[in-house]
Design a protein around this nucleic acid. Structure first.
Lengths: 219, 219
DNA sequence: ATCTATCTGTTGTATTTGCAACAACAGGAA
DNA sequence: TTCCTGTTGTTGCAAATACAACAGATAGAT
């Protein structure tokens, strides 16, 4: 993490301005050790956390004690109930650090209301916050679209189509290992490998280098 | 549709103020016939559409021509790429009217920037917009959580837990018919019925009236 | 009332998927 | 080098699921 302005939330805003705003917001920067809980949803003050350094997990423990991993957070990612999870009274969501973390906490009410030293950058910040939110919603929508396919073959094709829409012309690169892809598609890896083989054999999917593939459009 | 202030986007803002703002934004209200395309993502001006009357569908057609239904929109719902889908150059997303529709189009740049007649309500509107976005993200996250379960039994339990977290104490009411529940869980209805029967027989799930159930917490 | 539509509930069977286990391979560390 | 760890690729078999088809229940319309 070098510069605040590299983060999506602060993009387009010069670094000195970011620091000035962080001061204006009285936003604390805190450090955490591996395994520590950095933030508990619902119980603490509403804020957006920005992970400046380290890796963390967004973990949910429901009313029945079942634990589930909602998200993995990497350097530059943001979290906070205003972003994705509103506080459900019966289950607890919290951010657990995997490694040593440094986190900037931006109080929500100051973020969304214009400050007394009415600064221009604040408008840009609000715009960025909207981008952040809509990007999150978009990636979740895509995930739902993929997971709503009824069989592994369709899940693969759906996900590959999304990837190749992004890069265009049917060519795409997998952003994971195949094992992680199976986790992402919520299916068994060996079953997925079987379907992948069938797709290659039938000529729908053509390997095109390291982690790269070409998807033939259905004629 | 009686009152703008009944909509989530305008909640807490008196109706006369809503109308004044709509004028200030030069926001057009347009009417559409069944089957008409009310809005195409990416090609038109960025805006938030509010469905004042009617039913519509959010439809995506990808680079390969495959059509998929992203969302059903009812009276009071809002749409627009700032809300959920940023423009992907290779596929087209549009709003198709099912019935006759009346739609209010709020230009995005005027919505997010304070207007010259610096009104107080505008701040409330921005706050509401954030609520709208984060609520959308939250419901999508829940959907992903449910769909990421590996078998029908787990999907059912996961969804029932979410429902009973909301109403508390393990008691919940299904918001759909059972057929629609199968669609929501993305599985075969008859297979789902089998699992439901097993859950009832094992005493985990207890019927508690019309569409109502009680979920026993795992002891 | 009757006639629809749709929803619920059930079952047999074919297909898909998950599980377990294994071997080959690659990259990094000692 | 060797060892270790993780990924890829494969298979047999058991379990879960989809598909298809059906009958009864329910609610709305005529």
């Amino acid at each position: 993490m070098r510069d605040l302005s590299e983060l999506l939330l602060f993009s387009g805003i010069p670094d000195p301005e970011c620091l000035r705003m962080a001061q204006c917001f009285e936003a604390p920067v805190k450090s955490f050790s591996p395994g520590e809980i950095a933030y508990s949803y619902g119980t603490e003050k509403r804020c957006i956390g920005v992970l400046e350094q380290g890796q963390a997990q967004l973990v949910k423990i429901d009313a029945f004690g079942a634990r589930s991993l909602l998200e993995r957070l990497s350097e530059g990612d943001a979290f906070g109930e205003p972003i994705a999870f509103s506080s459900q009274p019966y289950d607890s969501v919290s951010v657990e650090c995997e490694s040593s973390c440094r986190i900037l906490f931006l109080p929500w009410e100051k973020l969304t209301k214009p400050c007394k030293n009415a600064c221009e950058c604040h408008q840009a910040l609000i715009g960025n916050l909207f981008s952040l939110l809509s990007q999150k919603a978009r990636s979740l929508s895509e995930r739902v679209e993929v997971l709503s396919c009824r069989c592994i073959r369709e899940k693969l094709l759906c996900y590959f189509r999304i990837l190749s829409s992004q890069s265009g012309e049917g060519l795409f690169t997998l952003p994971f290992t195949l094992s992680a892809l199976a986790d992402f598609l919520c299916c068994d890896r060996s079953a997925m490998m079987r379907e992948l083989k069938k797709l290659k054999e039938s000529g729908v999917l053509l390997p095109a280098g390291k982690n790269a593939y070409f998807l033939r459009s259905p004629a």
